[in-house]
């Protein structure tokens, strides 16, 4: 790996160029929180409940985000810190971004992170990551409101029906994700089973201790990870 390339990738100008996207993501979160809180007031949902929802989101994200942290450190050593900062603040997971960066090098015919990986190759990777992310951003930006229209038309505003719809969708996606880990076996399989069993126990516990509800997923996650390390 050419150290000169990495020096350029980490220089202050790139930080400044990466910052607007990160800031925009924070701005959107703030706008949406304020809108939701204002509307919650109109629906007579007390402020404490909104605070609790926010806190739950903050806490529940810690586990997954530390896993991202680890991957990101590896990513930074190939494509630089600021661009990893931008890419992992928005749509596109670390493997997706690395695939895009590698694809950029492929398109130029050089090996990703190899001795011939020059500034042009780095730039091609950055262009490729940006056009790839744009796919989701443009589609979701232009068509999300149409999906809302379809849902309302199909459901006719029936709350019970919508509850079934969203819970079934949730089960569908986690059914798929778990199937992958079950099929692979090993530590992943143990983590799935231990996570599942401890969730049952934690849910039973929260009936007596409603205060720990925010931590339910965190506890189940830690038990699942621990079991996988010990028995995997």
């Amino acid at each position: 790996m050419n150290q000169e390339i990495l020096r350029v990738a980490n220089e202050i100008g790139v930080w400044l160029a990466a910052a607007p996207v990160v800031i925009l993501t924070a701005i959107q979160a703030i706008i949406y929180t304020r809108l939701a809180r204002k509307t919650a007031k109109e629906l007579n949902i007390p402020d404490e409940k909104c605070d609790r929802a926010f806190k739950t989101g903050l806490l529940t994200a810690i586990g997954p985000v530390i896993a991202i942290f680890i991957v990101m450190v590896g990513m930074m050593s190939v494509i630089g810190g600021p661009i990893s900062w931008l890419r992992l603040s928005i749509i596109g997971s670390a493997p997706t971004e690395l695939t895009a960066a590698k694809t950029g090098a492929d398109a130029l015919g050089v090996s990703f992170g190899g001795p011939d990986y020059d500034l042009n190759a780095l730039a091609t990777g950055w262009w490729t990551m940006a056009v790839n992310g744009a796919g989701w951003l443009v589609f979701a930006g232009l068509f999300t409101h149409k999906l809302e229209g379809i849902r309302n038309k199909v459901g006719g505003g029936d709350v019970k029906w919508l509850a079934v719809l969203s819970s079934a969708a949730m089960l569908g996606v986690f059914g798929y994700l778990n199937s992958g880990d079950i099929k692979k076996g090993g530590g992943g399989l143990i983590a799935v089973i231990a996570g599942a069993i401890s969730m049952v126990v934690v849910i039973k516990l929260t009936e007596k201790l409603p205060k720990i509800k925010e931590y339910a997923l965190g506890i189940a996650m830690l038990v699942g990870m621990l079991a996988a390390v010990i028995f995997g």
């Binding site: 997954p64 819970s167 949730m170």
Partner: peptide, 27 residues
């Protein structure tokens, strides 16, 4: 940390399956 995701996915699957066991089995 390799096992964060399978543990979370297993736990969430159960959280919803308790409410809708039949759909869980199907999924």
């Amino acid at each position: 940390l390799d096992f964060v995701l399978p543990a979370i996915f297993g736990a969430l699957f159960v959280m919803f399956s308790i409410k809708y066991p039949k759909y869980g089995v199907f999924a």
